Amino acid sequence: MRKIGVVTGTRADFGLLSRSILLLQKHASVETVVFACGTHLSPEYGYTINELTENGIENIIPIEMLLSSTTRVGIAKSTGLATISFADAFNSQQLDCLLILGDRFEIFAAAQAALFLGIPIAHIHGGEITEGAFDEALRHSISKMASIHFPATDAFAKRLMQLGEQPSQIFVTGAPGIDNILNANNFDNIDLTSVLKFKNQNAPLFLVTYHPVTNGLPRENDITPLLSVIKERKDINFLVTYPNADGDGAKMISQWLELTNMNNVSICPSLGFKRYLAVMKQAACVMGNSSSGLIEAPSFKIPIINIGTRQQGRPKSCSVIDTIMEASSLNLAVDQALDNDFISLCKKALNPYGEGNSSEKIVQVLSETKFDTLIPKQFYNLD
């Protein structure tokens, strides 16, 4: 019996990991422990650790690590606290492998702790580029600490080889977030009345998620232009979810709350991944700078308005409209998203992140790999 730990720090990464976790916990030769940290334990962001148990996840260990400060100093201190907490938790569990996803600072902390404890790391979504966030550097750093890689595309796999990672330990799986779309046939049965409470139910629905930009232009974190467009566009219903806990996230929340009295705006701290996808299925457009707009939304064949530089460098479907945080540009993007010709184009869009079944591929590799042969690892020279 092999023991695999999984770390989740936000509602977003749990949505991507959930199917892999459930498949691991059902596997006869695998024992799985789930470490929940970050905003999962924050009341301000919806205390989403409850979502794990509601979705059938077992063996959950809370890891307290998030300070109330969201400044760069606060994030640096939270990362240090997380590393200490993960080191104690991982050591007590005697893990054979740690499965992590993405590029956030709490995932970086978990990878550091596992590296120092000699625990092999399996990393999902490595090799990608997001030039508008310091997550870019964290992701590549995590890749260098990891021994098993599950990139979403062949291009990302090649980038991992450029970093010196062994081709034999790189498994192109596609994006696991697409699995949720293919395996959640009951979207229509999910009750959304508490969040889709609009006066005009017939207006098109825009799903909006905008996160702080931590490595781009400072003006991108002033969402005043986006708010002004929403105030102006009474012909559209907007469902807004909270940003993550980085940088100016708290300031953005206070700005969003200015719209609470509008009949065409609904603000929800966290939808949870099932309700999020259920809303996305009903939406006329996904708007903001979340990776979900580029990775999952194309599978719903709807327009996506991608604002600013946060996702710069990622491959994009033809359904993505790039724009800047400026009112006139945002209005033009909204008009394009509502244009019938563009909507027809989106119906033909292909998702560059794959066609699903990523979780099955990930679980198969983790259930068969001989972890004791992975450390130390050699540098691969790409000719």
Rank of each mutant, 00 (worst) to 15 (best):
D88N: 07
S69Y: 10
Q94S: 11
D135V: 14
I181R: 02
G80T: 02
D135P: 13
K158G: 00
D103K: 10
R104P: 11
H125C: 02
A184H: 15
I170Q: 04
I63R: 04
H140P: 09
S69I: 07
L81N: 08
V73D: 08
L192V: 07
T70W: 00
H123M: 05
G74F: 08
D154Q: 14
G118T: 01
T173Q: 11
G126L: 06
K158V: 07
F150Y: 10
G174S: 05
R139I: 11
T71C: 00
I107D: 09
F134Y: 14
A146K: 04
A110H: 04
R104S: 06
R139Q: 10
D188S: 13
R139K: 10
P176E: 06
E64P: 10
G102T: 09
H125S: 09
Q166C: 06
I84F: 03
M145T: 06
S141Y: 06
A113M: 05
P151M: 01
L117F: 00
G74V: 09
D96R: 04
G126T: 09
A155G: 02
F86L: 06
L182M: 12
N189V: 08
A146S: 14
K158L: 12
T193C: 09
F105I: 15
H140C: 03
N186A: 12
L182T: 09
S147D: 13
G174I: 13
